[in-house]
Design a protein around this nucleic acid. Structure first.
Lengths: 233, 233
DNA sequence: AAACAAAATTGGTCTAGATGACTAAAAAAG
DNA sequence: CTTTTTTAGTCATCTAGACCAATTTTGTTT
């Protein structure tokens, strides 16, 4: 493995939580014990824990221990998360209809945002996502072709992030979002079952891997009357 | 001094930057040298540096050194900040026109959001804020009357947060924002110099003091084509 | 059973090193 | 003069301890 030990441990700890080995509110083993288990110094282990604390995944209490944090919906909202999770958190049944899915030549914006080498193709997916069968957003997601060449269509469309982690051992780091307002074009209005000109919340998100490489560029338009962002500051 | 050494060093380093001893883009002394100067181990000094890096104040370059960062607009955006700062950061001249300003009876929403006791009045302010004389948003801000009874109108409209801290010794803690899209009504379109029905970014923000009391409820509508939120995650 | 005291546990801070990886500048080679 | 190699400086990671402060657990006394 190339990455630093503390990043590797960070990822393993996170998987323990995602696989429900450690549940929300539960206390995880003490630093000294984990350092023993992973056979590293306590300082190194603390680096891994610190990263998870910064992400809001763990919570420390002096004298008590380290606990799996009870993440709020809003916090998930702020993180790199999936539409599916968002809908479930809101008590709605998520569904998704793919409009298009193909390998193609990237646009200039995509080349710049994803820092694509000359000639590299991208996988571009166009989707309408719904909650309880009501369209919520229209989304265009673009990823470098090389990144997903070993993945099946199913693995990409249904749980891209999970596949990335489990099959390629690549982990999302940070992301930037730009949010503004726009109005629905005729075509998008049809997809979203609104009137042409209706207000939409427009978001572009550029997601990066932990090593800093951009790996996904998503442009999403949400129906203004059916969706809102909630941010905790 | 009670606080940990690395916090004390952190504060001293920050003062060096604020006092322009170290300028933007300039390289600061190497970790080993600073560790010597402060007479601490390198690990401790790195903790101080790390805190400043997390705050976006410093920037490390492997093999080169540590530099005073050129802080970006997006980072300021993420905090509880003022419109004025935002505009200045974007290189625009901020201005603001007050549409109305009066003590009045709160709406049901305001009572709930601000947790107002029965019979308490609120100060409600209606404003249009501009950058370089171009309207950017229309805003209605509401604060409990008791909170601002000792403040002058000038103190409230020009620098409310500063006045809160300096005169009442109250400090803003966290805030929640709800962001969605809507369209301009005839009246708001006039204020913002757009067409009726044009898309607006609608934000409601509820701000809390450090002790958890809500103290300000703001409803803002931004012109979609002139403003965007940038979020770093 | 309750109250208090002592001990054990846990995260927080700090030391004094070592080694590695990366960068930029200087030196050497062509 | 240009290119390549070397070298010195820098941050990144990691170790194996130490002591401190907050909290919980355990033991003892009342």
């Amino acid at each position: 493995m190339g990455s630093p030990v503390y990043i590797q441990i960070h990822n393993q700890l996170r998987e323990n939580i995602e696989n429900d080995k450690w549940r929300v509110g539960q206390k995880i083993p003490a630093e000294r014990e984990l350092a023993n288990q992973f056979n590293v110094s306590r300082m190194t282990l603390r680096q891994a824990i610190q990263a998870l604390v910064d992400e809001g995944i763990l919570e420390r209490r002096v004298g008590s221990g380290t606990f799996v944090a009870n993440r709020k919906v809003q916090e998930k909202m702020a993180g790199v998360t999936s539409f599916t999770e968002l809908m479930l958190a809101a008590g709605k049944t998520p569904s998704s209809k793919t409009i298009s899915y193909h390998l193609t030549v990237p646009s200039q914006t995509e080349i710049e945002k994803l820092k694509l080498p000359a000639g590299e193709q991208v996988l571009r997916m166009e989707r309408v996502r719904s909650g309880n069968e009501i369209p919520i957003c229209y989304e265009i997601a673009t990823v470098p072709a090389t990144l997903v060449k070993d993945f099946s269509r199913e693995e990409i469309t249904s749980s891209f992030y999970r596949t990335l982690e489990q099959k390629a051992h690549l982990y999302p780091g940070h992301a930037t979002q730009h949010i503004s307002a726009t109005k629905a074009t005729e075509r998008i209005a049809t997809y979203l079952d609104v009137k042409r000109g209706d207000p939409l919340l427009r978001m572009t998100q550029l997601s990066y891997l932990q090593d800093g490489r951009p790996f996904e560029y998503v442009h999403t338009q949400y129906v203004g009357s059916r969706f809102e962002f909630v941010l905790e500051k």
